[in-house]
């Protein structure tokens, strides 16, 4: 388009008074919009909080979760790395609910199949199930990530072995640390994804205490906040189980 056309098409003559009227009108509308924007921002920031997040934002996080969960594909795996990619110094994060020592002669994983029906399993019971290695880029919600090497039994294998078939059809798995001070809820499709493991080894050695000895969850399709350490209790529910960080304003789903 030539220069001439641009100016011809868009140029017109208007009277001074109609120009002035147009100006006042546009600036008035603009002022109203600015005021509306400021009002909307103030309104949003004065909304009550729900689970640590402003209510409209919490609703949006839940809507995001719904949209993204509906497209979640369990066949999509977190990228797999080789053993030599894995770091030796594995970062420790999150000390809530962590005990200094745990005696595995008395420790039992408590699997609540239903109210009043709890399966109690020793570490040996879990270690004799098929073991898989998971080497992946562990992602913390803070923003850092690290390729780390873990091993244990896939949660799906574990649940199949103990005939938790009706439980597999429920919506959520709830997990608690031994002292129950840290707890997470995980949607069932993510829990049953093949890389999700009940983990007892890191870098081919038993888990260190600060990495969740004797048993922790490794779930590569979630942020680190869901990889609960020092696992004590597992239960199943159709409602969202309480989640430590979701109660403090984070997205409940925390899926990757």
């Amino acid at each position: 388009m030539s220069r001439h056309n641009f100016f011809d098409k868009r140029t017109k003559e208007i009277s001074n008074s109609s120009y002035r009227r147009k100006m006042i009108f546009s600036f008035l509308i603009f002022a109203v919009l600015v005021a509306a924007g400021i009002f909307a921002w103030k309104w949003l920031n004065h909304q009550p909080t729900e689970q640590g997040a402003l209510k409209p934002l919490r609703k949006t996080l839940e809507a995001n979760e719904k949209i993204l969960q509906s497209t979640f594909d369990t066949s999509k795996k977190s990228k797999v790395y080789t053993e030599k990619d894995a770091v030796k110094n594995v970062r420790v994060n999150g000390l809530v609910g962590m005990e200094k020592t745990i005696d595995t002669s008395t420790w039992r994983l408590q699997v609540v199949r239903a109210a009043g029906d709890t399966l109690k399993l020793s570490l040996d019971d879990i270690e004799k199930l098929p073991k898989v290695h998971v080497i992946f880029d562990f992602k913390c919600i803070e923003g850092w990530s690290q390729v780390t090497h873990w091993a244990g039994v896939p949660l799906k294998t574990f649940m199949d072995y103990y005939h938790l078939n009706t439980q597999e059809k429920m919506n959520y798995v709830g997990l608690q640390t031994v002292d129950k001070k840290y707890y997470v809820g995980i949607d069932m499709p993510s829990a049953l994804q093949s890389q999700t493991i009940l983990c007892y080894e890191m870098n081919n050695k038993p888990l260190p205490m600060n990495q969740g000895y004797p048993l922790r969850l490794i779930i590569p399709v979630k942020y680190g906040i869901k990889h609960l350490k020092q696992l004590g209790t597992m239960y199943f529910s159709n409602q969202k189980p309480p989640d430590y960080w979701a109660e403090r304003g984070y997205d409940y789903y925390a899926g990757l």
Partner: peptide, 23 residues
Amino acid sequence: FRMKKVIKKHPLAIRWFHWINFP
């Protein structure tokens, strides 16, 4: 003297997009 020559520079839609995008 009583008239002004003006050019319609930014269409209404673009002004809206601009001022929504900024905040």
